[in-house]
């Protein structure tokens, strides 16, 4: 049971895709979670449904929809191509698939955290002279930090494990779109590939375990800083 170049490439790509997906998705998910938790607007239930759609749709369908929307021939794909960004059959597309699939999980965790913050604390901060941005960075954000962290970890884990939407949208190109789960699946298609698959599965477990340990440590640090409040 050895790890060959294919496995390492897949791991490197998966980490790369997951880090990008998480970094892009966290601020977006936080904004959407904020809107859903704090604002009333026309089309709110539609936005909520849209965010949650990837959670209930078969991943293949989500991947198919992405393909229809973002293929170079489609309007959205063509528009992005003009700024030099192509998604279909590229690692960038894998990032988009990971973001879309992880988004509902991230929004849910962050929305719950925001809803748990008493707006009266933010009002008190405002009466003390804090402008909106100060209220957010010094009161709201520290209080929701554990929820944001939990959402980010879930998004990262989802990105590491995403398979169906990714393979449908960006296919299975070694070194380009072959993430770790896709590489494992590929190995299983080849006669005699079981040991390579097992090695990569173990690798996958190790990464997941590491992520959980790191997030727990981070959560403890945040909780300590918040001082066991509420």
């Amino acid at each position: 049971m050895t790890l060959d170049a294919v496995a390492w490439d897949a791991l490197r790509l998966s980490l790369w895709v997951a880090v990008w997906a998480t970094c892009i998705a966290v601020p977006l998910a936080l904004s959407v979670a904020w809107l859903l938790a704090r604002r009333e607007f026309w089309g709110k239930s539609l936005l909520n449904a849209l965010v949650h759609l990837p959670l209930v749709l078969p991943p293949v369908v989500t991947g198919y929809i992405l393909l229809v929307l973002f293929s170079p021939a489609a309007p959205a794909g063509a528009a992005l191509a003009t700024i030099g960004l192509t998604l279909a059959f590229k690692w960038t597309g894998a990032v988009l698939a990971a973001i879309v699939m992880g988004f509902p999980l991230m929004v849910r965790a962050m929305r719950l955290a925001i809803e748990a913050v008493d707006p009266k604390l933010e009002e008190a901060a405002a009466t003390l002279g804090a402008p909106r941005i100060g209220v957010f960075t010094r009161v709201t954000l520290p209080l929701i930090a554990p929820g944001v962290l939990a959402g980010a970890v879930m998004g990262f884990a989802k990105a590491m494990g995403e398979f169906g939407a990714t393979i449908t949208f960006v296919a299975n190109i070694p070194g380009q779109t072959q993430t770790l789960p896709i590489a494992i699946w590929t190995a299983l298609q080849i006669p005699g590939g079981e040991s390579a698959a097992a090695a990569m599965a173990l690798l996958s477990c190790a990464v997941a375990l590491g992520a959980v340990i790191v997030s727990e440590a981070l959560a403890r640090r945040v909780a300590k800083r918040i001082g066991g409040a509420r």
């Binding site: 009002e123 009466t127 804090a130 918040i226």
Partner: peptide, 22 residues
Amino acid sequence: TAPHKRRFGTVFQDARLFPHLS
């Protein structure tokens, strides 16, 4: 005028201390 520009220090019935700060 926004609350933060009014400079009315307010003390509420429920104190509203920031729980994450000493």
